[in-house]
Computed example of a mutant assay.
Amino acid sequence: MSAPVSEMLREYQEYVLAYRLRRAVGGRVTPQGEQLSLAGYAALRLERQDLARRLVREGLDPGRMRRLDALSDQLMFGFWLNPSEVAAFLRAAIREGGHPALGHPAAFAALLTPAERARLGEVGVAQVCAHHLACFALAAPMMDPDGLQAAWQRIEATRPPLFLDELSA
């Protein structure tokens, strides 16, 4: 059973925002290569999905396992909702000197294009910022398990709509 199209588009949207944030932080967290188009992302996502299925069914040789890991890294798969990924990113971002977008809604909003901000409106921009900044809270519950429930509640309560320029062209 495949995910609805809106979920797949949301996954791409999350990739783009992670890409923009990592590029803004710079240094060692800067993504390799150019930002993928929706079609490019979809093609690599299908390849990753095929490798993951094969891993479950038959195992993978070391070369294919490295490819699966490389695709996961390139697609920033799970970047926003995986506590260990969030924690690793925040540690690396802090080593790079941090960035205002890691804690300030206005700085995070600056990652959006003018057209995206206009499409979302003031309330929508606030929701997008609140959602993604809430995702950073996933790193803390690794030390405070009770905080995980509260973090997930904030994330779900602020789930943004689809809004990227790349999705409305």
Rank of each mutant, 00 (worst) to 15 (best):
Q74T: 15
F108R: 07
A126S: 07
G98H: 10
E58I: 04
G97F: 08
M142D: 11
E96Q: 12
L71N: 12
R57N: 08
P141L: 13
R67I: 03
D50Y: 13
A92R: 13
M143Q: 09
L44H: 08
P105R: 03
A140K: 06
G98Q: 03
D61K: 00
F108D: 06
A43H: 13
C129W: 04
F108K: 07
A43W: 01
L46W: 11
A110D: 11
V123G: 09
E47G: 02
G63M: 01
G78L: 00
D73C: 10
R91N: 13
G103K: 14
A93R: 01
E85V: 05
E47H: 04
P100N: 01
A43G: 14
R119T: 08
L46K: 14
P114D: 03
M65C: 03
A93N: 01
F136W: 10
R45Y: 07
G124N: 10
R91A: 14
E58R: 14
A70W: 00
L60E: 02
G103H: 15
P141H: 12
I94E: 13
G59Q: 00
I94L: 11
V123H: 09
L55G: 13
P114R: 04
P83E: 10
R48H: 03
A106N: 03
E85N: 14
F79D: 05
L55C: 11
N82M: 05
F79N: 10
L81T: 12
P114S: 02
G147Q: 12
L60S: 01
L60V: 03
A88S: 11
M65P: 01
D61G: 15
H132W: 04
F136N: 08
R117E: 04
A101F: 04
P105H: 00
M142V: 07
